[in-house]
Design a protein around this nucleic acid. Structure first.
Lengths: 221, 221
DNA sequence: GATGTTAGTTGCAATAATAAACAAAGTATC
DNA sequence: GATACTTTGTTTATTATTGCAACTAACATC
């Protein structure tokens, strides 16, 4: 019986300069040595409690990042995707603010706009496309995009994040109503985002109990 | 290095007598011999193109069924779920009309209401719960439930299916508006569901191009 | 042919989403 | 230091969507 290669891959996404970007690493071994690819690695049955733990470990080991949001995307499999043989990759996607990626200071870790990717090994292009689809779709009815923001952010900033993901402008009042409905944010009392030549905006943060979970809406937006 | 047990499991769901049911098989070998469990089996890297093909094969071999709708649910994994060791199961869920299950005439295949399951082996209870969640959630904004109906059905029948899945009555006009929006059904010209002591209903079928895909709505229902 | 029952449609009221206008609070300019 | 400018946040008005109730339609039964 032929053996199965079992790995996990992590699609680490962030929003920087108005564009959704994926973190890629130069591979340090064959196959595809020195090619930019998703951070991934073998599952360690001896150490990993399950594939989610494996994904957390791989992400930590390869990028130094511990993501506040990590969710299983899907499993990709088949004979053709890895030159070593029949393989199977359980994929997880993570959303982080760009500062988190920069703060770890890994020069081999680079960010790439998700819509102009070329030369990716394995089926990583397809995997990233699936992750982007998932994020965009989930953004249309949930609070998922908050994980792309830092600890504190203003509503106009959050709205800009939504607008980039959804690819269309959102009505200000509708947006604020939805966020209000989610009931996951709290204003940071007395703290405003100052600096611009205009009225300063209220800063918000995720309520503690929502640090790792989503709020979803019945009717989109 | 410890080996990983790689399997696929299929959650075959149908709606019968007003209640969502899952198809279970008596296991023919250890572990859990003679216990009711999800149809599942090892991935065959030599024969299966990918895990979806493996799931199709397993479903066909163990139940005789080829499902018009089969979608990857998630991958469940870890040390504790299988007494043989660290295991991983890529799970797929299938939706079929009850007649399809009955037509294959497998006496070892039985249907069980999803909300009163007891004594399931492995983590099959959790897997089924995840599948049911997925189906119910997806029913709230897509045309998924049509796969629980047979080839031809009336709108009141389809509405009843939705109402069972969503657990609440739906407004008749709203429902028909949404189905109209999906634009996936066509009336079977001149064919009505007769028999009752009342006005006969128009029979509908899925348009050919929508046989294996879903239609989704922006705003629920 | 009157009655009961479910199918399917129509019109209206209630609700929600969008758009536009306005007010608030700061910085920059002269 | 008054004025203009810019973005935030709210209020009001308009439009679209949804839900309800009443109505007609088409059978079977008695």
């Amino acid at each position: 019986m032929t053996d199965i290669i079992a790995t996990v891959d992590v699609i680490l996404l962030t929003l920087k300069e108005g564009c959704l970007r994926v973190a890629l690493l130069k591979r340090d071994r064959e196959p595809y040595a020195n090619v930019l690819a998703l951070p991934g690695g073998y599952i360690h049955p001896d150490g990993d409690a399950d594939t989610e733990a494996a994904a957390e470990r791989v992400l930590r080991e390869k990028t130094g990042i511990v993501s506040p949001y990590l969710e299983q995307l899907a499993t990709f499999s088949g004979r053709g995707r890895d030159p070593r043989g029949w393989s199977l990759s359980i994929c997880y996607y993570a959303l982080v603010p760009p500062e988190l990626i920069e703060s770890v200071g890994r020069p081999d870790l680079s960010l790439h706009p998700v819509d102009t990717l070329r030369g990716l090994p394995f089926d990583h292009a397809r995997i990233i496309a699936a992750a982007v689809d998932r994020v965009k779709n989930k953004s249309s009815y949930s609070s998922l995009p908050v994980y792309l923001c830092g600890d504190a952010f203003t509503l106009p900033q959050l709205q800009a994040v939504y607008e980039i993901l959804l690819g269309e402008p959102i009505n200000k009042v509708s947006f604020r109503r939805k966020i209000e409905e989610f009931d996951i944010l709290e204003p940071i009392q007395g703290v405003l985002a100052t600096g611009g030549a205009h009225r300063p905006a209220q800063l918000y943060r995720l309520k503690k109990q929502y640090r790792k979970c989503l709020s979803v809406s019945d009717r989109g937006l």
